[in-house]
Structures are given as C-alpha cells and as structure tokens.
C-alpha cells in the first residue's frame, strides 16, 4: 500500500484545500516475538487537524506512536510526514514529540531545558533566545525560568515537557497522554496552549485516557484495538456508524405492572424499563402514557445521549483504561 492508495478523510472544511496529509500511517505491521503489536494499521492526519488516538491498554498505541516518530522500525508498512517517508533524515524535524514521561532534565532550570532541546533542534543564537522567551511566556513560567524543574509541580513540569517539543515550530505535534497526572486547572491550561498551536496551523495527534478530552479537544478520532484501526471519524460519525443516534430512556416505575408497557424492555440488571427514541420531545409523552395505562407510576426517568464512551465500549468491549 502506498500513500496515494489511502483515502484522506476530511474533518474540517478548510482541510480540503490541502491535498497532502500531515501524517499518513500506511499498513503498519510490527511484532515482538509472538506478540503481534500492529496488524496493518492505517490512518491519516490532515494538515491543521486535531486527531485523538484511542485504544485500550495493549491495543498497540505505544508501538504505533513510536513508529510514527521513527523510534520503532515496522516489519511492514510506512509512515509519511507531509508526503515524505520518515526515513528521510530531515523530515522528522517537522515533528514535535511529547512523550508521556517527563522527558526533561530535572536538574536543569526551565530555561536551560528549553535551550538544550532548542539547540538539538537546530535553533541557534538570536532565534534560540526568541523561541525560549516565547516558550516561557507560552507556558506561563517566565518568573520561574531560572528554577530547577525538579522543584516544579506536576502541571508545571508537563508544560515545560510540552514546550521542549514545540520550540522548533513543528508542523505536526505528537502528544502521548500530555495531561496524565495533572490537576483540572493545569489540564485546561495545557489544552489552551495546544489550541493556540493548532490555530497557528500545527496538526496534532493526541493519545489520551480521558474520553472527554478526546470528544472536546479533537476534530477526529481514531480507535485502535488489537493492533488495528477499528473505527475512525468525527464523534458524530462514530456514533452514527456504531450505536446509532437514538437516545436511551431509562425509567424507574412502581405500581402493579402485570406486563411491560408496549415499546419498553425490562432491564433486570438495572431494575428499570429501557427504550430508545429518535426524538425525545415527540416520543416521551407517549411512553409515559403507556406506563400509566398499565398501572405504573413513574418514579424516575433518565435520558442518555450516546457518547464516545458508548462507542468505545461497543467497539472494543472494554473500558478505555482496561
């Protein structure tokens, strides 16, 4: 399979103007002994797009991410960055990698860390100073620039970790769980920073265990399981193509119900009646009426809108953290 043979999905109207995907993963296979980590994984990231990469533990995400940044040599398949193979030595410089671990030097100051990784990405003299100054401002640590990072809070270390990967203005940013172990305020701050980069044109691939992050902070979602892409698309597309858009209505009722009201099913696990509706406003009054007709009294009612969690559970049979 080649780059030209894979279809390029569109998530943003403006993305259609750009033909070459920012990142294309084409038919990747990788095994470690008898363990087949990747089994023909393929997907693309459009330019300027934010893509969330989801999968349960052991699904092959880490191998996939390491393949994307050239740290794992796949048995088969290729990865293209802006149309060029990542085997091209210069092309990787278009990518910024933010590992899940804090890949910074704890015994250097924030500024020294930024200078180190800036220099390793080819920044020198005035350009380096400008980018370091920008990064310190961007992560809100100007006043603590000369402090050793080992004294920083988890959120501050995460921000320095991210800044070290974007100093050289990469066109594609790969983030492996950038918010793991940080408080909600820091998470918000980190996503604001990423949104800022995205607005400037940086394409982002994000892996996360927070489904709400994936739902709200990405344009498109790729779900990986058993080394393969099991679904991909926008959140609406995923819901529609998997569990459908119908709302689930759960009703707790009391009274002498001799039989289940028409159109409702009894969920013995929940101890409640369940049904699915396309339009809550139109269909709910009829449902309540049917319950009353058979002598039931509605005690509680819950309407559940299908979400990414349902999709994920439907596709993988597992919770995200399993």
């Amino acid at each position: 399979m080649t780059l030209s043979s894979i279809s390029i999905p569109q998530s943003k109207p403006e993305a259609s103007a750009v033909d070459t995907p920012a990142l294309a993963v084409v038919d990747l296979w990788k095994s470690y002994g008898s363990n087949q980590a990747l089994k023909g994984t393929s997907f693309v990231l459009n330019q300027g797009e934010r893509l969330a990469l989801l999968g349960p533990n052991g699904a092959g995400k880490t191998t996939l991410i390491r393949s994307m940044c050239g740290r794992v040599r796949p048995d088969r398949g290729q990865v293209f960055l802006l149309g060029k193979s990542i085997r091209d030595p210069d092309v990787l410089l278009q990518m910024g990698v933010i590992p899940q671990d804090l890949a910074i030097y704890a015994d250097l100051t924030a500024k020294q860390n930024l200078e180190c990784f800036g220099q390793l990405h080819g920044l020198r003299s005035r350009k380096l100073r400008e980018r370091v100054a920008w990064a310190l401002k961007w992560i809100g640590l100007e006043d603590r620039a000369h402090e050793l990072t080992k004294g920083f809070s988890g959120g501050m270390k995460r921000r320095v970790n991210i800044a070290c990967g974007v100093l050289h203005r990469p066109r594609i940013l790969l983030l492996d769980e950038p918010t793991v172990g940080v408080d909600p305020q820091s998470r918000q701050r980190i996503f604001d920073m990423l949104d800022e980069l995205n607005e400037e044109g940086t394409s982002i691939v994000l892996t996360t265990h927070h489904l709400d992050e994936a739902e709200t902070r990405s344009d498109r979602i790729v779900i990986v399981d058993h080394g393969k892409v099991v679904a991909e698309g926008t959140i609406d597309h995923l819901i529609e193509s998997t569990i459908g858009t119908q709302r689930q209505v759960t009703i707790q009722a009391s009274g002498l119900l001799v039989a289940a009201p028409p159109g409702l099913e009894w969920d013995s696990e929940k101890g409640r009646f369940v049904c699915w509706v396309d339009n809550v406003a139109d269909e709910l009054p009829g449902i309540l009426e049917r319950i009353q007709k058979v002598g039931g009294v509605v005690l509680d009612l819950e309407v559940h809108q299908p979400n990414l969690h349902d999709v994920f559970l439907h596709l993988t049979g597992k919770e995200l953290r399993e």
Partner: peptide, 13 residues
Amino acid sequence: ENSTLDRLLCSRL
C-alpha cells in the same frame, strides 16, 4: 528510562 532518549533521537541528534 524516562523517554528523553526518544526525544533526543527525534531531534537532529
């Protein structure tokens, strides 16, 4: 151990 090597080798180094 802390993935800094990955980051270093993703640079020009």
